[in-house]
Computed example of a mutant assay.
Amino acid sequence: MFCGRPAIAKQRFNKTYRHPDLDKKLTSRRLVQEGRLLLKCLKANVPVPTIWWVDMARLTLYMERIDGPSLRDYLFASTVGWLSGQSHTQERSSSLSPMSLDDGLAQKVGESLAKMHDANIIHGDLTTSNILCQGESSSPVRVLLPLVIIDFGLGYISTLPEDKAVDLYVLERAFFSTHPGTEDLFQGILQAYRKVTPASAKAVLHRLEDVRLRGRKRSMVG
């Protein structure tokens, strides 16, 4: 709790392998940077936790607690729940296809990422584990929940389409490696991303093709 409100405390710990003075400087810088990125996201209407306090003495961020599963767990549970429902005829009418809400989900993710990149914020570690679905997920019927992006510990500011493209590529790899069969879902995310800021998105998505090509070459070389 923080001032009577549900909260989480994210503390950065000292790295013993670094010189103490250097470690203190780098850790403090990352803490301040993450706090600034969250504030910048909030101003840009990007769904992130509200930040309440930055404790430099304890190297701790106090933020709004988001109750709900990660997008990773949400997609996994939705798929498992649907498959289970298919084995019970009486449950089929109340169980949605695991991809039946793709359009809405893709739109929410794509719009959020577009707003974030339009503010020149690079997340640095975009995965389905760092996107939360805010709300109750225990219902057997798959309901599209509000999304919240978390963990900007590796984030930074950049105007370069290359950096934004790498952000998208990291998320794409996370989708395909963790959630097989979601190619159409990710394409929907990119379509929603393009619609928010068509001009800047064009350069980013063009660069994404180059990033993909480099990724495939690295995979072939090993």
Rank of each mutant, 00 (worst) to 15 (best):
L126A: 00
L126D: 02
T127H: 01
T128H: 05
T128W: 05
S129K: 07
S129G: 10
N130E: 11
N130W: 04
Q134F: 01
G135P: 03
E136A: 04
E136D: 15
S137V: 03
S137F: 10
S138R: 13
S138A: 14
S139D: 13
S139Q: 11
S139C: 11
P140G: 04
P140M: 10
V141S: 12
V141W: 04
R142N: 03
R142M: 04
V143D: 05
V143I: 11
V143E: 15
L144N: 00
L145M: 03
L147E: 01
L147V: 07
I149T: 07
I150K: 06
I150Q: 05
D151R: 13
F152E: 13
L154K: 14
G155S: 10
I157N: 06
I157E: 14
S158A: 09
L160E: 14
L160A: 12
P161M: 04
P161G: 11
P161N: 09
D163T: 02
D163V: 01
A165R: 02
V166I: 15
V166E: 07
Y169I: 01
V170I: 15
V170K: 06
V170A: 12
L171F: 12
E172R: 10
R173H: 13
R173C: 12
R173Y: 05
F176W: 08
F176V: 07
S177L: 13
S177C: 07
P180S: 09
P180F: 06
P180N: 00
G181C: 02
G181P: 05
E183P: 00
D184N: 10
D184H: 03
L185R: 05
F186V: 08
F186N: 02
Q187P: 08
Q187E: 15
Q187V: 01
I189V: 15
I189F: 05
L190F: 00
Q191C: 06
